[in-house]
């Protein structure tokens, strides 16, 4: 049931958008093209970062360093039930969006998109943001030097995303 719901959302949203826009007599194809062009620009904009990061992460994994890091963190992850492979993603997520994307794509490739690890990585990636980047851009724009409690509150939200993401996957994909 939930899977049908999930799969039906995207076409439904497209339908609503197109219907609504046509009712408003907007040149929808022109709007579509200009948006699609922006999408193209965004993707090519992050491509150099992705090449650098995915290359570095692949090297990091091949050398055995990733496995070492995962083992090193296992005293924290094991009792919490978090798959160890997720930790590099959890650590990099608040710092770099393209870095996190690189790790997710590597994880989906090595563990498989429908494996438990693959699903947790997808959920964590989809439900969190690049915390420190947002912080720097927003506060930098109005010269705020003292961000008070923003960092602890934001990181607590990220941690919640990691834990809830893991547990929701346990429930949804009955592992």
């Amino acid at each position: 049931m939930l899977n049908t719901l999930s799969a039906g959302v995207l076409p439904f949203i497209c339908l609503v958008i197109v219907f609504f826009a046509m009712a408003k007599k907007i040149d929808i194809f022109d709007a579509f093209l200009s948006g699609a062009k922006d999408g193209l620009k965004t993707l090519f904009g992050i491509l150099p970062a992705l090449v650098g990061l995915i290359a570095a992460i692949t090297m990091f994994r091949t050398s055995g360093a990733l496995e070492f890091l995962t083992k090193l963190l296992s005293p924290i992850t094991k009792p919490l039930g978090i798959p160890g492979e997720i930790m590099p993603l959890a650590l990099l997520r608040p710092v770099s969006g393209s870095g996190a994307l690189a790790i997710v794509s590597d994880l989906l490739k090595t563990s498989g998109p429908d494996s438990f690890v693959g699903r947790v990585a997808s959920v964590v990636m989809g439900s969190t943001e690049t915390t420190f980047y947002t912080l720097a851009v927003y506060y930098g724009s109005v010269n705020i030097k003292n961000s008070r409690y923003t960092v602890p509150a934001a990181l607590l939200a990220d941690l919640t995303g990691l834990l809830v993401g893991t547990y929701v996957c346990y429930v949804f994909f009955n592992v």
Binding site: S6, L108, P113, G118, R119, T160, V164, G165, F172
Partner: peptide, 23 residues
């Protein structure tokens, strides 16, 4: 990304993502 990696169920994470991000 999931679809490109050959997932049988690329959309399956949608509801978990909503629950997780709202929490």
């Amino acid at each position: 990304l999931r679809a490109a990696a050959g997932s049988q169920d690329p959309f399956g994470i949608l509801v978990p993502v909503w629950i997780c991000s709202v929490t």
